Computed example of a mutant assay.
Amino acid sequence: MSVVKPAIRHPALIAYLAGANNYTWLHFRNGEKKMLAKPISYLETQLTEFIRVHKTALVNPACVEKLQQPPRQRMAGSVQLEGGIVLPVSRRRWREVATALQPYLSPDGEVTAVAAPEPEKVVEPPITPLKSAESPATPTRTVLLATEDSNTQSIKWALESRWPQYVLHTSVQSSHLPRVLSLLSADELPTLIILDARTSTLERLNTLQQLKEDEQFGQIPIVMLVPPIDDAITDSYRRRANSVISIPDSQTPLGLTIERISQFWLRTAALPVAL
């Protein structure tokens, strides 16, 4: 089942989208992120009120606080979003973006107040900006879970309520992870990766191998969830999984397993502050 429509069902909750090849990060106004296996050009057709400010960025105009003109010719301008996030406006899109934001601009170039609904709690599953114009807050550490389980939202709430210093990002596919992680800075990399290999076993094993063969990503602890098959367990350790958990029953609640993993890796084990 597609996770795209549930993720964009409440566009007022989204601050901006950042494209990464054929994948897109959705950045929500509450600070959460979710990755979708769709190019930003596709999502632009679904979020018609959003404004394309750059080939890799699509913004919610209700979140724009300031439009900054290019400082010199042949330089990019910028938009500042709520929370101090600054995104570039490409030179060839400048006129189009300025026109689209004109209804919200005051004479000094600041964006006037935009009536927008207050963020609401999302009950369905909704995963690189420039540096903030303000002093950045202490970065939140992240856990990445690749699974086809449909109950990820309750798992997210459970993990983040017990370990509030962590944010859980989920993804259905995993083959793109090495490429997507390569776009992140060191302090944005996940602290822990969990690959649910009960389905898509070969894909998860290949992802594990690619990550562990990388000098930087190989330091990230990776936990494999596998069916009770000797080959899956052996292959996981052969490809340098840090931990392998065999789940004998497909009906076993994933949330309980994730809680036990988190209890060890987030509370007991010593993890690096930055990779």
Rank of each mutant, 00 (worst) to 15 (best):
S132P: 03
K121E: 15
P119E: 10
W157I: 06
N151K: 00
A133R: 05
T170W: 03
K156R: 07
S132E: 13
V122Y: 08
E118P: 01
I127S: 04
P129D: 11
T152R: 00
K121V: 15
L130E: 14
P164C: 08
E120W: 09
V123K: 01
S171V: 12
A113C: 01
P178E: 08
K131C: 05
T170E: 12
D149G: 04
T147S: 12
P139R: 00
S161D: 14
W163I: 04
A158L: 13
E118Q: 11
P129G: 09
A115K: 08
E148H: 09
L183D: 14
A133W: 11
L145N: 04
K121F: 13
R179F: 13
I155F: 07
E134V: 14
A115I: 13
L183W: 15
E118K: 05
S135A: 11
N151I: 05
P136L: 04
A137K: 04
R162Y: 07
V180N: 02
A116W: 15
P164N: 08
T147N: 04
I155H: 05
S150F: 11
W157Q: 09
P117L: 15
S150V: 10
I155V: 15
A137M: 03
L159D: 05
V167D: 10
A113W: 12
V172D: 08
R141K: 12
K131S: 11
R162S: 07
I127R: 01
E134F: 15
V143I: 14
V172A: 09
V122I: 12
K156P: 02
P164F: 10
T170V: 15
H176K: 01
A115D: 14
V143H: 02
S174Q: 09
E134Y: 15
V114A: 06
L145K: 00
A158V: 07
P126E: 12
A146L: 04
K121L: 13
T142D: 06
K131H: 12
R141N: 09
